[in-house]
């Protein structure tokens, strides 16, 4: 094992990790707002990837340009899912936790079925995009441009989100709703509206991730599954509800995954991620930065 291999591994791991963070942050945001884990998060990612793909295939819009469109589409979609489904799941008096897990789990299955019905199970991919296939080499270390842009985007998105929550009225409304939903209602903030916007925002973030991933990943109805579990682990590792936690959790997962593959058979590299998760929660039961 040369120094070059190690540096290359860690560099790739860091880029992948930032992307994991971007995929996961929407999940964390929604959870922090209303204590709900969206088990259809992987399918949201899948839809975003299809969105970028079809905009490219039919209108020849490069994913880099269609990214805002995809994010906007996902915003509407996420808000609609809240208003049509999740809102009702939250009304449950008993077993709220299980009801929302299975409502979103059922939704995941429906979305997969719908994708198969309308998009066919064919494997798609965007063969020629501005970013796709390009790579930068610095001193023998290769950094693929799509992941590089994805990582940069993740950093910008996290920064913007942090600013948004801390500095804007709506962000403060989000925070307040999360602290005490009842009191907020008294002040005159419409809780449903805040939640719908929260779902929209969370989904728009996964939309960004999906558009970037469409440039270097294959797309098919089940594509979300492999990312969904990683996203849950990232969010829990960082601490549920903590936006910064998702950021740190993503980076940690990326680095651990890459370094596990250096010392163990690659087919076991996920074991490293899982072991680190267990280690962290056994020591800090609320994840690295969790407060709830």
């Amino acid at each position: 094992m040369t120094a070059e291999t190690i540096i290359q591994s860690l560099a790739s791991g860091l880029l992948m990790g930032l992307l994991y963070g971007l995929i996961a942050v929407g999940l964390s945001l929604i959870f922090g707002l209303m204590n709900i884990v969206n088990f259809a998060h992987g399918e949201f990612l899948m839809l975003a990837m299809y969105g970028a793909f079809f905009l490219f295939a039919f209108f020849a819009i490069d994913p880099l340009l269609s990214m805002p469109l995809v994010a906007a589409g996902m915003f509407v979609f996420g808000a609609a899912i809240y208003l049509l489904i999740v809102r009702f799941a939250m009304r449950a008096k008993t077993n709220v936790g299980m009801v929302q897990i299975f409502a979103t789990f059922g939704l995941a299955i429906v979305l997969r079925g719908l994708a198969q019905y309308f998009f066919t199970p064919d494997y798609r991919s965007i063969s020629h995009s501005w970013l796709g296939g390009k790579t930068i080499s610095i001193g023998g270390i290769f950094l693929p441009v799509p992941q590089l842009v994805g990582a940069g985007l993740a950093i910008v998105a996290f920064g913007a989100l942090y600013f948004f929550i801390k500095r804007t009225d709506f962000g403060r409304a989000l925070e307040a709703t999360r602290e005490d939903a009842g009191a907020v209602a008294l002040v005159g903030i419409d809780q449903n509206r805040v939640f719908a916007l929260g779902w929209g925002l969370g989904s728009a973030l996964v939309g960004l991730a999906g558009a970037i991933m469409a440039t270097f990943f294959y797309i098919y109805p089940d594509v979300g599954a492999s990312f969904a579990l990683i996203a849950y682990v990232v969010v829990a590792l960082g601490g549920f509800g903590s936006v910064f936690g998702a950021f740190a959790g993503g980076i940690l997962v990326g680095l651990v995954e890459a370094s596990t593959a250096l010392i163990m058979p690659p087919s076991l590299k996920a074991v490293g991620i899982y072991a680190v998760y267990l280690l962290v929660v056994f020591i800090r039961p609320r994840g690295l930065f969790g407060s709830i």
Binding site: I85, F88, A89, V99, F102, A103, F105, G106, L107, A108, I109, V110, L111, R112, G113, L114, A115, Q116, Y117, T120, P121, P221
Partner: peptide, 17 residues
């Protein structure tokens, strides 16, 4: 065409809601 998935998933959503 995944119709079975749609039916099965919808059932879970509807019952849990």
């Amino acid at each position: 065409r995944g119709v079975d998935l749609i039916v099965y998933g919808s059932l879970i959503v509807i019952v849990s809601l």
